[in-house]
Design a protein around this nucleic acid. Structure first.
Lengths: 241, 241
DNA sequence: TCAAGTTGTCTATGATACTAGACAACTTGA
DNA sequence: TCAAGTTGTCTAGTATCATAGACAACTTGA
């Protein structure tokens, strides 16, 4: 069968636009499996290779993700993550209509190096508790963070976090009613092997690395942490002014 | 120079869209000459042939018209031609901001065939006056019409029309103060050679063929006519309700 | 009448788009 | 373990897109 008209818009682009419209208007929900390439080819009356071209274009933009042997899936919308003074993972994720989850990976003892000592207002070598945790929205890992707290001020913080699975609740357990972000530094890197496994992320993908320190209402440092966000799953929003 | 990106939209289409936008927002006024093909090619950084492809697409849609040796011109906006009970060419054209003109081509005697006799309420073979006229907006021919009137009721109508060049005025000359459209039938056809010359239209172009009969306030038939409109120059508006 | 500038048409070449078929690699569920 | 279904990757052929150059046909204005 021949082209009926030369519209000046490539077939693969027409297919890609059609699928994108389907995603935008919810006909294909986030995380859902698209029809097979063959089926798409039939509905649009084009060759399977043309469909693959369309899907490749969508994949490059992060709208879909192909899994060999399984299917092509609609990528979850990037989580909008506003960077405000008051930054609570659970609140941000909940506001996005997702269920926030936290999962303890490891809690151990550590001692303050110079940077952490400066951030927390402690002496170098001061006893610390280091908490490794992964935080998820619904079932999707969003970030892994390494959090350091003073072992003197927050004794046994590791087992407390294992129970409450939320930094906000952990601090509340120690009588901290409120806290806010004192400083935030953002860089990017390639995910390392251990983080890749924890984030369920292929090797080679970029992560957003966030170094942050939270303080209480008297500006006393509470915790400092380094979080690694799967770049393709979040979008930081900086609020100016 | 190579393509900077594969957008899935053909270059000629991008050029065509750009020019069309220019026409739509008035950067290229109706009747105005577009830049030369070479100049357009330079501004869009494409080959002249690519520009020609774009212009051909626009010409096919009637937006521009190429004149060999001279240039490519923006076609006049299609004349909005409402089809109402009260249909006066001069009023419609005047309302569009154009100067209505009429030009007598031929006036001759005729006799009523069955159709015309029925439309005008005459007997078959009744004497008629047949007027061939072309009607223009500014200097652009819009339509040619063949009008039949009863020779008994409108004696010498041909020479009267030659003077007043308006059907409304002609009827007024015979004491008809007002009239309105009784019936309108619309079809389409390909322009014939004589009409093509009168409309200044290339052969092969479509025309809208309108058969209409006007009656006076007592519903007595006055004139019946067949008009051929250059399809690319008008746009009939049917007002519902 | 002539020169400059315009659109129209031809040939040619390379890049890209689309189709077609085959098979490999992988996942899933029975 | 196996069969069915999925995506990934080849090769190949045809059509369209885009570029390039040359010249014809025509219009315009000096």
């Amino acid at each position: 069968m021949s082209m009926q008209e030369s519209s000046g818009v490539a077939l693969w682009r027409q297919v890609a636009d059609g699928i994108e419209r389907g995603i935008a208007d919810g006909r294909f929900a986030a995380g859902e499996k698209l029809p097979g390439e063959m089926e798409i080819a039939e509905t649009y009356r084009v060759n399977r290779h043309t469909v693959r071209r369309a899907l490749a274009a969508l994949a490059e933009r992060g709208l879909v993700r192909a899994e060999r042997g399984s299917g092509t899936y609609v990528e979850a919308q990037r989580l909008a993550y506003p960077l405000r003074s008051r930054t609570r993972f659970s609140e941000i994720v909940g506001a996005g209509g997702h269920e926030p989850r936290g999962q303890l990976i490891d809690a151990s003892s550590d001692t303050a190096n110079r940077e952490i000592a400066r951030e927390l207002g402690l002496k170098i070598g001061a006893p610390l508790i280091r908490i490794e945790a992964v935080r998820l929205a619904d079932r999707t890992p969003i970030c892994v963070s390494t959090t350091w707290l003073s072992a003197e001020r927050f004794p046994d913080a590791g087992s407390v976090f294992a129970n409450v699975r939320s930094m906000t609740k952990l601090l509340g357990h120690y009588g901290v009613k409120d806290y806010h972000r004192a400083s935030t530094r953002i860089t990017a890197a390639i995910v390392d092997a251990t983080d890749a496994a924890r984030l369920d992320l292929p090797l080679g993908r970029p992560v957003l690395v966030v170094d942050a320190t939270d303080v209480d209402m008297l500006d006393q440092p509470l915790v400092t942490k380094r979080s690694r966000f799967a770049a393709e799953r979040v979008e930081f929003l900086v609020e100016n002014g």
